[in-house]
Design a binder for these strands. Structure first.
Length: 198
DNA sequence: ATTTTCAAT
């Protein structure tokens, strides 16, 4: 019997890491980014499970060693060498929305990769740096769908990117006010994208 | 309980 090498299990995030990094109540100084890729076949989006996973930013006390999650993701996408003759849809779930610099990099990527659609769902709006609104607008104008994660996305990520050990059916445990907070954030994001904020 | 932000507003 030709037993090939066992297929490598896709790494999954542990439950507490996902919850801590998604929460509207407890902001961590780190970012996790989950991604998945679909390709268009006969007008249908077909999941490509080989390009499904997650990563996090690089943190360091040395400034030059730090890296936001998005540039790491852009590098990873480049390594896939996606076929420019096909159409792809890439969906990203990220704990913080892209900062202005990362938004610029993503815009550049989208201009150079017209065969790729990008959807970004963020758990929280990263409004620390000046110009974050314009960054999000540019990203949106470049064709990316930018939205907040809602209960639906939290549940989806919980099911698809998180390790539940022995309990595969463990339901996502929402925190207090999750629905209200994500609705508030969605309205705020809508205002930003329509340039109505402040 | 934390009112916070991909460490240094």
């Amino acid at each position: 019997m030709a037993a090939g090498p066992a297929p490598e299990a896709r790494p999954l995030m542990d439950e507490q890491t996902f919850l801590d990094n998604s929460s509207h109540l407890n902001y961590l100084k780190e970012t996790y980014l989950c991604y998945e890729v679909e390709s268009m076949n006969d007008d249908l989006w077909i999941p490509m499970d080989e390009y499904k996973g997650f990563l996090r930013n690089k943190s360091s006390y040395r400034r030059w060693e730090r890296c936001h999650a998005e540039p790491i993701f852009l590098e990873r996408m480049a390594s896939w060498n996606l076929d420019t003759e096909l159409r792809y849809r890439i969906t990203v779930f990220i704990s913080w929305s892209p900062c202005p610099d990362c938004a610029d990099e993503l815009v550049k990527f989208l201009r150079e990769n017209r065969h790729v659609n990008l959807r970004i769902f963020a758990a929280r709006i990263y409004d620390w740096y000046q110009g974050y609104e314009a960054g999000l607008r540019e990203l949106n104008a470049a064709g990316a769908e930018v939205a907040m994660m809602t209960l639906h996305e939290f549940e989806y990520c919980w099911k698809n990117f998180v390790d539940h050990q022995q309990d595969e059916d463990k339901p996502f445990p929402p925190w207090d006010d999750l629905v209200v907070r994500s609705e508030e954030l969605s309205q705020r994001l809508e205002g930003i994208l329509q340039n109505r904020e402040e």
